[in-house]
């Protein structure tokens, strides 16, 4: 069992630019053996063959992240720019209620 875990593919974080003029946005993660495979898979999974979008993939363990404990020091200066916080993004009205 532990033997097999060693062979698992690493995790990649996926960022997609849905259309020109927008930033790349983090959409989720996936597993792949290498960057090339990660890009292929990201296209299949997160954009379903849609041409013309731009995709970034980053090895998850290469992402350095701030810790929530450092909130004060890092984020206070921009506390008024609420859109920087992921929790701000509300649910689109278009979510279907059938």
């Amino acid at each position: 069992m532990t033997e097999e875990i060693k062979h698992e593919w690493p995790l990649f974080e996926v960022f997609v630019r849905a259309k020109r003029g927008l930033n790349h946005v983090h959409v989720g993660s996936l597993r792949a053996a290498d960057h090339q495979m990660a890009l292929h898979h990201a296209r299949d999974l997160y954009t379903r063959r849609n041409e013309g979008v731009s995709i970034w993939v980053v090895r998850s363990d290469d992402v350095a992240a701030s810790s929530p404990d450092e909130k004060e020091a890092f984020f206070s200066p921009s506390g008024d720019k609420v859109y920087r916080h992921p929790t701000y993004y509300s649910i689109p009205d278009s979510v279907p209620h059938i």
Partner: peptide, 19 residues
Amino acid sequence: GHGLYLYSAAETLGADRGD
């Protein structure tokens, strides 16, 4: 795809898909 989105969400909590 749904399965993958969800495993991906579970992995943000420290779970491992293979496991």
